[in-house]
Design a protein around this nucleic acid. Sequence first.
DNA 1: AAAAAAC
Length: 508
Amino acid sequence: MTKFSDLNLNPKVLKAVEDAGYETPTPIQAAAIPPALEGRDVLGIAQTGTGKTASFTLPMLSLLSRGRARARMPRSLVLCPTRELAAQVAENFDTYSKYLKLTKALLIGGVSFKEQDKLIDKGVDVLIATPGRLLDHFERGKLLLTGVQIMVVDEADRMLDMGFIPDIERIFSLTPFTRQTLFFSATMAPEIERITNTFLSAPERVEVARQATASETIEQGVVMLKASRRDREASEKRNLLRALIEREGDKCTNAIVFCNRKVDVDIVAKSLTKYGYDAAPIHGDLDQSQRTRTLDGFRAGDLRFLIASDVAARGLDVPAVSHVFNFDVPSHAEDYVHRIGRTGRAGRDGKALMICIPRDEKNLAAIEDLLQKAIPRVDNPLQSGTAPEAEAEAAPAPEKKAAKPRVSRRSKKSEEPKTDAPAAKAEETPKPQEAAEAPVAAPVAAQEAAPEPQQPAPKPERKERSSRRGGGGGSDRGRQDHGGGKVTGMGDHLPGFIALSFDERRTR
DNA sequence: AAAAAAC
């Protein structure tokens, strides 16, 4: 079996890889690194979690190890669709370049130009950027791309989804045509194929081998929810979410809760917080500093629940989470696979639970169609006869609190949450009489009225993770952090359909 | 239909 030491990497890069605890490359690394080191273009068809990041980071560093950058003329360029992804790639470069004297700059939006300008002026070997900010720098005349020898496009299919393709084409056209191009995409949409035909020259095509599908290590379930009244739907979804979390108990050490809309991310995060859960939101409308802080906290194990839009669905290198909750059914079936792929990583067990309301049944069917498998229906803990005991535990003395109107406390303006959460307000003033009438609502009211702060999950295990992070970051990692099980290289498990070849996928 | 990304 191939080892990193067989790949002809620069010795200093190899040393950093070994320091990080890696010996055996993943399939995509083994296949992409040799041609990349020879200076060839590479077209990588791979999903996050396959070790993709290292498959371009390691050869790039090796190739750049000699030479020096000139002012405003970066020698290489990595383009990523989201800021978090770019930051993550930057961390990877730091990890594997620690024995080299290479300079690096991260150009992403949401932060000041000043620092970025300073770095560019000094000259950088590696520039990691999101397209918008990169072009912004270029248009200010701060940046010349004519010195780019290696260009990487990461997650091209997502760039396509986000409308970045014109930007990518423009950036390509600003770099010398003699550059080496490493291009990665999870799928090969016709538009992507067109770009690669235009900008890559005789690329080595590297597809990840078929592997175990994510669904084999992820236990999936969907709860069907029909709201008692249409105007209560949102609130009842939140009740159900809490009940699902409670039912998982200690098994749920940390989780990502995905919502389709940014407003709902805010509302759900606020609602969970109000009920004593350790939760924080992340989506594109939040300050970059807050996004970074939240994500770092979650990675470090200081935050138990990350409430996220699809900004966090793909590519993010989050340590194994025990659970993914889909508060909404994603409307793109493929997003489901990406979302639940945040759990069950590196062969660990994971659980993915989703809430489906009648309106979402069509999307659910599309997901099952894609998976070619039905997602097991699971009981609604608030409706079935099995749940009440569990609930009583979770919500001590509900009778007392239910009777007590909590409106007065809320009437102080100063206590209003900053973000407007109209739907959340309905929750805060439960109406006992109505609750008694509706069969569904009775347990709901009990839950609502008892925002008993629950114990955060035991922390010791999660603390460990924070130390690992400093230790090397890995790539799209499959860290060998689980007990005895053997993991090869930095690999991870893949959803089956992603591992299919182009032709196979086309015919599906 | 929404999310992401530039000011």
